[in-house]
Design a protein around this nucleic acid. Structure first.
Length: 110
DNA sequence: TTAATGACCCTCG
DNA sequence: CCGAGGGCCATTA
């Protein structure tokens, strides 16, 4: 067991939550998506907003375009980048600016 | 401990 | 379709 490192600022549990979210998001296969709320549920929580905060600070380490709003509309300000990815991955769309969640939705179970 | 903040979600008009 | 209002919960000040 690792003794607590006092030289490092005590990360209460934020790291565990962040790691859990990272794990789920990175598990989303190409061409599929999950909503923020679904990601939260997958880690045993309902903190969709906290998931969003983590995504915003992930700094490109995460496939953020695979995590979308519950109604399938694209992230304001990043539509172009997201669409580029969806086009490359073949993610099902309902309209040029809206995802087909019915077909694109994915869950860790399968 | 309380208050504020956020790449959210749902219901109603 | 669009907006307002309330609820949710982890993090931070």
């Amino acid at each position: 067991m690792k003794p607590p490192e006092l030289s490092e600022t005590a990360p209460s549990d934020y790291e565990a939550f962040r790691e859990a979210v990272y794990g789920v998001v990175e598990a989303i296969p190409s061409g599929r998506v999950m909503s923020y709320g679904e990601v939260a549920a997958a880690v045993g929580s309902r903190a969709a907003r906290a998931v969003g905060r983590i995504m915003a600070h992930s700094g490109g380490e995460l496939p953020w375009w695979r995590v979308v709003y519950a109604d399938g509309h694209l992230l304001p300000g990043y539509e172009a980048q997201a669409l580029d990815r969806y086009r490359a991955e073949g993610t099902p769309m309902l309209s040029p600016l809206r995802l087909d969640l019915r077909r694109a939705r994915w869950s860790p179970e399968g």
